[in-house]
Amino acid sequence: MSISRRQFLKLCGATGAAISVSGSLIPEIVAAMEKATAGNPPVVWVQGSGCTGCSVSLLNTVHPNIAEVLLKIISLKYHPTVMASAGEKAFDYLYATADKNKGKFFMAVEGSVATGAGGRYCIPGKLKGKEVTFVEMMKDLGTKAAAVLALGQCGAYGGIPAGKPNPTDAKGVMEFFKDNGIKTPVINIPGCPPHPDWMVGTIAHVLLFGIPELDSDGRPKLFFGTNVHDNCPYRSYYEEKKFAKFFSEEGCRVELGCKGPESFADCWKRGWNNNVNWCIHNSLCLGCTEPGYPDRFAPFYEKTTG
């Protein structure tokens, strides 16, 4: 079965009432991907200064489910939280995969790059008896990868570790590559964490059709192209000037500190965790997909000015 890019985009962006919204990545896509990825483009997933939340969010993917992603769609050669292997055996395999597939493999980066103290704030493993800092790993593997998926706030823009006073000089991958003259293309998939559909959908797009169209912050427009506030189900309250004064009161959440007006993501139609809920229905948006989070939106529970 084949699938056109147009159909794919439509499916990824679909909203669903009867089926789960996450079900927009339907079996047809799994089948198309299985076919398209018969050559198994290798994917390695590495972790820097992060919390593993992006990995846990990826495990929450519903359609395709994570077993399908791991066993049918991608050839995941390295993932610190999932893989069987450990120690030197695992680390050797990561570097051997990168050398063998130079320019062909995709690298998912979870967590930011801690550049302070000569990289000593994050040391993900030992290679041939020598400690490798995450900075060294990014320089080495970053140069060899076909493209990098910079995951979460941390991978994309530095995230919480880069929050004031940024004690470890943490940076997002794109900035780190720029500082070090690394030309490998980077796709940002921000969010703290990113929605599983954003990760699986972007990986699917990359494998089937190449790098998707990105916005000026390096994010796929497919998922990050709409303003949360403009599309919010509570928007009519805003027009009526009916503002919630405490959590759970009916009304627009802007007075509570909602960052929807400054945020670009499709949470408003996609929902979270198989669409059982989402942030603004629960309380408010904290702007976790935006460059500059968290400092740009702090204090979180105060109305933003300007």
Binding site: T52, S55, A114, Y121, I160, T168, A298, P299, F300, E302
Partner: peptide
């Protein structure tokens, strides 16, 4: 791994702590 959460929290609105600290561990 050192990220410095405790130092990142200094000077912030106390209510924001319950959001920031969740990022210590995504599990």
């Amino acid at each position: 791994l050192y990220r410095g959460f405790e130092n990142i929290l200094i000077g912030r609105d106390p209510r924001d702590a319950s959001q920031i600290v969740q990022r210590i561990c995504g599990v």
